[in-house]
Design a protein around this nucleic acid. Structure first.
Lengths: 191, 191
DNA sequence: CAAATGACCATATTAGTATTTTAGTCAGTT
DNA sequence: AACTGACTAAAATACTAATATGGTCATTTG
């Protein structure tokens, strides 16, 4: 179309700057310049810097959801589905430029807005997983349980294993983690 | 005895100061004054502030081990033992003045020395739990598995449930957490 | 005249620096 | 020989001047 979509330009510019510099180091002047737009224009679409940021996080959440849906397979077992979802999310965390930058900023500077945003992302991931688990319960594949707690436990356990474990040990291979999931969460330890 | 045990005085003073003010805000002058000792004397027993601190962390680790051994019961099930141990450790985290202060400093200021110390404490807890789990494996109570990974998973899961879960939900009761442990780790989710 | 702009402002952040504090030493005292 | 506390170099902090930033709004533009 002939009319330039300024809102889109702004969102793209902001996303780019956030990916490169993080939240704190992204200024509204910077975004305006990158988007070839007057700074005031940004404020016709977004009330504050935080609102602009939140909209980009919404896109990120949508992207992740899209990726997650891509690896879901209704005919696969719950173990495979959960595992594939978690592996995919972990891959995104490690390859997606924006995610990398935000995790870094959260860890190194503890920027409040970023901490909150990452918690929102985590919450949304738990919600997808909750739905997956609910389906498995409905199918009778696993026992009845609170699907949200189950999703929470799985996510925490997965990231403990791939991230925290490495602090003092050689990293676990993907298949090892899958085995551990099967043992601890599905089969149980009881002899 | 007639001769004053200056090393003990110093350790007590340092422990007190650490409990009250944390690592950063505890100064060697402060410790010397509290211990009624010249500052130089401290350095006849401890090479650096960090070495003094490390010795106090060693005591903390020993205290925790003592507490843990107090709740262990050879005739109880592995589930009960693990649960009791984790509950006891959590109680210590919430009631022991030094622990409270250090967790706070780790979270709020990220003092490097404190972060490392807390990791050492965590590692030592994992080691006790590893031994408990190994015993259960030997007794044939649970399946053969890497006891260190099992200990790690249990600790992470427990603290996720009592600490992280509360960020977005009402806290889980002790019995609920015990039930969750039983379900996820021992029985497994499989229908 | 609606949409867009950028100079402008109050506030927040940073850089630069003076001041204080602190870990660790060591000459002197007990 | 054991202990001390004044001392020092280095680090942390407090203070201040300079800059940068989020957000506004009178003016311009298409």
């Amino acid at each position: 179309m002939a009319v330039i979509d300024r809102k889109k330009l702004i969102l793209e510019a902001a996303a780019k700057s956030l990916s490169l510099y993080g939240y704190k180091a992204t200024t509204m002047d910077q975004v305006a310049k990158l988007a070839n737009v007057g700074k005031g224009t940004i404020y016709t679409f977004f009330k504050t810097k935080e609102e602009l940021f939140d909209e980009i996080i919404n896109s990120l959440i949508a992207d992740i959801r899209f990726e997650v849906e891509g690896v879901l397979d209704d005919s696969a077992s719950i173990l495979d589905n959960v595992n594939n979802v978690l592996v995919r999310i972990h891959e995104i965390r490690e390859s997606h430029q924006l995610t990398i930058k935000l995790i870094q900023e959260e860890r190194d500077m503890g920027t409040q807005t970023v901490v909150e945003a990452m918690q929102r992302v985590e919450q949304s991931i738990i919600q997808y997983m909750k739905a997956i688990i609910q389906k498995a319960i409905d199918k009778g594949e696993i026992k009845a349980c609170d699907p949200e707690v189950a999703a929470f436990v799985m996510l925490k356990m997965y990231f403990s294993l791939v991230i925290d474990w490495q602090r003092n040990h050689p990293p676990l291979k993907k298949e090892e983690i899958a085995k551990l999931f099967e043992l601890y969460l599905l089969k149980g330890l009881l002899a």
